[in-house]
């Protein structure tokens, strides 16, 4: 029988690995709306990571802030200013 701890921590490691890809795309993306969407993916994965690392308090405060408020605020800012980043 496989050790359950390996499976649980393996999921966390997978989430961390995918969050690297999401961060990379969020930083390098020129369209700012897509950057916000990638940032939301990264936030969801971090929330899962916090859950597996046994921090329910942090999950409860992190999800409203990072999934509920950050994208809204940045999207309002983008809709009032520019939606493309010119490099």
């Amino acid at each position: 029988m496989i050790d359950p701890q390996i499976i649980v921590l393996g999921m966390a490691a997978l989430a961390a690995l995918v969050s690297v890809i999401a961060t990379y795309l969020a930083i390098l993306e020129k369209n700012l709306v897509r950057a916000v969407v990638f940032s939301a993916i990264q936030s969801t994965l971090y929330a899962f990571l916090y859950y597996v690392l046994m921090a329910p308090d942090i999950v409860l405060v992190y999800i409203p802030v990072a999934v509920g408020l950050y994208p809204a605020v940045v999207l309002i800012l983008i809709s009032k200013t520019e939606k493309e980043e010119k490099v």
Partner: peptide, 17 residues
């Protein structure tokens, strides 16, 4: 249970938004 003033406040702030 898990929760508190910061968590509840941040949660409630999404409703007006």
């Amino acid at each position: 249970t898990p929760g508190g003033g910061f968590q509840g406040g941040a949660t409630a702030a999404v409703a007006p938004l």
